[in-house]
C-alpha cells in the first residue's frame, strides 16, 4: 500500500489540463496500490487554487507556500515537493510530462532515492507501465523496482480527474534551504494567443515547411484554424525556419497532441512528427506530394496544392455553419 502525491502544476495561478490529468493518473495508481491520493500545490497566494483542486476527488490537498516558490524553479520546487512527500508518507509522486514536470520530477526522484519512469502512456493492472521509446516506434513495458516511485504521465494518454467530493486543504510550511538554491527566475516571454492550448484543443491544424513562410501561416493557415476554432501547431521545419514560435512544435521532441481532428498541411510526416500526433482520432493530410509519408497514417488524404485547398476548405467549413 502506497500513498500517492500528485504535483498539480499551474501557470500564472491557473490549472491547465496537465494538473487534472496527473490527478486522474494519480488516482488510478492509488487505487491500484490501495493507498490514498493527495495533491500538492506549490507557490505563493495559492489558497484559491488549492480550494479548487480539492473538488477533484483527492483525499487531501497540501498547499505549500513559500516566497522561493513564487515562480517555478526546479531546485526550490524539488526541495519542497520531496520534503512534502517524505513528511506525508507518499511513496509515489506523479506529475504531468509537461515542460515543468520534465524539468522537476527527475530531481525529486533523486532526492527521494526513487526510480523514475517518464512520459508513461499506460498503467497496467499488474503494476507495470508502458512508455513510448524511439519516437513512439517501440513501446517499453517497464516496472519501477524501488519502494519509492516517481512517474510523469503523457497528458494525452490519460483522462483528467472528474470533479467529486470536497477534500480538506492543509496548509504546509515549505521546507526549503534557500542557501542551496542556484536557479533564479528572470522572466517569461509568453507566446500570446487567443486560440485553445495545443494540448487541450479538440481540433489541431498544423503547418509545415510547405507553407513557405510565416506570412503564409497568417494569411493562408490561420483563417482555417480560426474557422474551426482549432489550435495551431507546426512541424519542426516550420519552427526552425522561424515561421512560428517554438512552443507550437508537435512531435517527438515537441508537444504530443491527440485531438479529435488533426489536419497536417504541407507536412511530409517524418517519424519525429508522427510521434507527436499519430494518436489523434482522425487525421487529415493536405500535401501536394502523393508519396508523402503522412498519407500512410491519414484517415483522409487530399493530394493538392495547399495554397488552393486551404482557403477552399475554410469556405466549405464556413458554409456548414
Amino acid at each position: 500500500m502506497s500513498n500517492v502525491l500528485v504535483f498539480a502544476e499551474h501557470q500564472h495561478k491557473t490549472f491547465s489540463k496537465n494538473a487534472l490529468v496527473a490527478l486522474g493518473a494519480g488516482k488510478t495508481l492509488a487505487a491500484q496500490s490501495g493507498g490514498e491520493c493527495h495533491a500538492a500545490v506549490l507557490g505563493t497566494g495559492i489558497g484559491a487554487l488549492a480550494t479548487e483542486l480539492a473538488k477533484y476527488g483527492v483525499k487531501k490537498v497540501f498547499a505549500v507556500e513559500h516566497a522561493a516558490l513564487e515562480h517555478y524553479t526546479a531546485d526550490a520546487h524539488a526541495q519542497a515537493l520531496s520534503a512534502l512527500a517524505e513528511e506525508k508518507g507518499c511513496d509515489i509522486v506523479v506529475g504531468a510530462a509537461s515542460s515543468i514536470g520534465k524539468d522537476l520530477l527527475p530531481r525529486v526522484a533523486v532526492r527521494l532515492g526513487a526510480g523514475m519512469a517518464s512520459d508513461i502512456t499506460e498503467i497496467n493492472g499488474d503494476g507495470t507501465m508502458v512508455r513510448p521509446t524511439y519516437a513512439g516506434n517501440a513501446m517499453a513495458t517497464i516496472s519501477i523496482e524501488t519502494p519509492r516511485k516517481v512517474i510523469s504521465v503523457r497528458v494525452t494518454a490519460f483522462e483528467p480527474a472528474a470533479a467529486e467530493g470536497q477534500a480538506e486543504v492543509e496548509n504546509v510550511a515549505a521546507k526549503i534551504d534557500e542557501g542551496a538554491l542556484k536557479i533564479k527566475f528572470v522572466g517569461f516571454n509568453e507566446t500570446k494567443s487567443d486560440r485553445p492550448a495545443l494540448t487541450e484543443a479538440k481540433v489541431v491544424v498544423s503547418g509545415g515547411r510547405g507553407l513557405k513562410n510565416g506570412e503564409n501561416f497568417k494569411t493562408v493557415l490561420e483563417p482555417l484554424v480560426d474557422t474551426l476554432g482549432a489550435a495551431m501547431g507546426a512541424s519542426r521545419a516550420a519552427v526552425d525556419a522561424g515561421f512560428v514560435p517554438n512552443d507550437l512544435q508537435v512531435g517527438q521532441t515537441g508537444k504530443v497532441v491527440a485531438p479529435e481532428l488533426y489536419i497536417a498541411v504541407g507536412i511530409s510526416g517524418a517519424i519525429q512528427h508522427l510521434a507527436g500526433m499519430k494518436d489523434s482520432k482522425v487525421i487529415v493530410a493536405i500535401n501536394k506530394d502523393e508519396e508523402a509519408p503522412i498519407f500512410q497514417v491519414s484517415d483522409y488524404g487530399l493530394v493538392a496544392d495547399l495554397f488552393k485547398a486551404v482557403p477552399e476548405m475554410k469556405e466549405a467549413v464556413e458554409k456548414l455553419k
Partner: peptide, 30 residues
Amino acid sequence: VQVKTHKISPPPARQAGKRVETVQQLVDLL
C-alpha cells in the same frame, strides 16, 4: 536496477484511410 524493462512491443499500427478528390468531399466526409 531501478527501472526494469519487461518487453518492447511495436506500437499499434495505424491504417491509411481514404484518398479524397476534392476539398468539398473532404469537408463532407469530416
